[in-house]
Design a protein around this nucleic acid. Structure first.
Lengths: 339, 339
DNA sequence: GTGAAAGCGCTAACAA
DNA sequence: TTGTTAGCGCTTTCAC
């Protein structure tokens, strides 16, 4: 069995209270006593019992991070940023993959709740179904009243839940991107959106439509994917079949754009000569595709770090501050003037 | 304050033991009592206190996963696989980024230890420095004697530490890959290895050298990167400068290979016409580069899931079983016969 | 500056 | 089938 505080106390000839004090350094302890305790600690190879401490202190040294899937770079970049910030606050980060399933999301929030995590950050777009939003709101309310710091990163807070939100400018970024596509001369554009009923999908699609309407164009052809490369591939083939006159395809994220490029290549359609392609997120892969992807950069790492710091309690939030993360257009080679 | 077991018991008019029993379903409880308890549970919105349970039961519902950096796809794929398996055992997974720092690695193992995690999986190559290996061995020994399930995924167990190891065939894969490069006619090959003193680097480099020596060739030019895209980029420029007669560059992983391709493109060197390039891992991005990357596929997800199951206690290991994960050569377009 | 002792909320004997 | 009752290992008043 591992040594306990009592063992250490006995060995050092002091009380457990004293050992606890030197461990936490939150009360004065004489130098000699401290020294003796330290020696005992070392000799016994003492390791704090986290659960016991958490029980007594009513809070653990863990924060939770909810993502769709850490194997998706969009999320892994965020998870990584948050984890780093947690680490520098000496906190552990548990990562939860929901695969976009509302029930998994609820399940994970409950699990984090029961672990009495110090904080939690919910990343990525959320489902818009009212019942789900209500369920989330309720759980987050419980978390909040238990003193858990809740932070949203890339998604809105449910109505009535007052928590800090790191907000990426999805709408503005999409608007800017589509304006760019329009500005080089495209008029027949296909848009591959993310899954319906997702806040990120909605925001990006809205931005895209605003830009289209500004030009007085008819609405674009819109198809829905699920933000995966494969769904972008399929949607591109579909667009090719149903709307052969398109000169540009804008995807709701980079992964789908990669799928689009692959599909076009397979069909012998040249990018950008025959069809221009644009993405969103500016994932690392965007510069390795050929042609390099014109896309919108989101400061994912920076935003996630910010969220991580807030959840860890390292950074304070003035309740009103909206943590706004601007989007930046990245013009590369995949979009050019139509032939 | 959140409701406790005692609150629920009082409301249901039973003892805390009974409530605990219906919660854990490990002892018979009459249907009516159970029903009453469930109602109380619901009315009070009871949430188990994880730390308290962990303290009493002497084990938590968490496993730990140690990686270099979850934002690196090599690790995020593994972290994701492990997390999924943990989830299906109703366990939470904490992910720790060490950035390859030995001291961080030790720090995280201690933190996991103190959380009394159910299991932990250490992924990726490990540092070979004897002191570090010894330090790890000691910590893992403590973990083991505390009943924590330890699993290695893609790295060897320290000597004297008897734990299951999911082993990827780095050496064999590298040998096969280089044989392929040689077989199409290359004789002047540059190799960009991973960071020195890393088990993965060593295994892959060894495989590469074996293939080269089989052919009775002089040793290849070897440079070290750090497995990042940027280091591959730099190393490629260096090779171009110092060994302008190379006809092929083999990188220790795909990320560096992407960097190599980018560097060559920037220098106007055609791939594979002027120089062939090969990678290792078969990350998703390998098929989106142009030319598509010839590389070696490692069943990362599968291996990580296996490790996750073992760490979660879902899968038993016959102590002798070596969990061997074969490597598969993926021939694509980035390697062709030299001009 | 240090100790005694009362919990924190749960599990698991042991009884009944 | 259910209740009683010790702890699990730590933090934290409250005394001294």
């Amino acid at each position: 069995m591992a040594a306990t505080l009592a063992d250490v106390a006995a060995r050092a000839g002091v009380s457990t209270a004293t050992v606890s004090r030197v461990l936490n350094g939150n009360y004065p302890v004489s130098a000699v006593t401290r020294e003796r305790v330290h020696r005992a600690l070392g000799e016994l190879e003492y390791v704090v019992n986290g659960p016991a401490r958490a029980l007594a202190a009513a809070t653990s040294e863990v924060i939770g991070v909810i993502v769709n899937d850490v194997s998706d770079p969009f999320f892994s970049i965020q998870a990584s940023g948050t984890q780093w910030e947690a680490a520098s606050a000496d906190l552990l980060a548990v990562i939860c993959n929901t695969a976009g399933s509302p029930s998994d999301e609820l399940k994970y929030i409950s699990m984090l709740l029961r672990q009495r995590v110090r904080g939690m950050v919910l990343t990525g777009g959320s489902r818009e179904e009212p019942e789900h939003v209500r369920a989330i709101a309720k759980l987050l309310g419980q978390a909040l009243s238990a003193g858990t710091r809740v932070v949203m990163c890339g998604r809105p807070a449910p109505p009535g839940v007052d928590v800090p939100c790191v907000t990426f400018d999805n709408e503005g970024g999409a608007r800017t991107l589509t304006r760019h596509v329009l500005s080089v001369g495209h008029t027949r554009i296909g848009y591959i959106a993310g899954p319906p009923g997702n806040t990120t999908t909605t925001a990006r699609l809205a931005g895209h439509r605003q830009a289209v309407q500004e030009q007085g164009l008819d609405d674009t052809v819109v198809l829905h994917g699920d933000f995966s490369r494969a769904s972008g591939f399929d949607a591109a083939l579909e667009l090719l079949r149903t709307s052969p006159d398109l000169t540009a395809i804008v995807a709701g994220n980079d992964l789908m754009a990669l799928g689009v490029i692959a599909a076009l290549r397979q069909r012998g359609v040249r990018v950008p000569e025959d069809i221009s392609v644009a993405g969103f997120d500016d994932l690392p892969a965007a510069v390795d595709v050929v042609p390099a992807l014109t896309t919108v950069r989101l400061p994912l790492d920076q935003g996630a770090r910010r969220a991580g710091r807030i959840a860890s309690g390292t950074e304070a939030v003035t309740s009103l501050s909206r943590l706004w993360m601007p989007a930046e257009l990245m013009v590369r080679e995949s979009v050019s003037a139509p032939a």
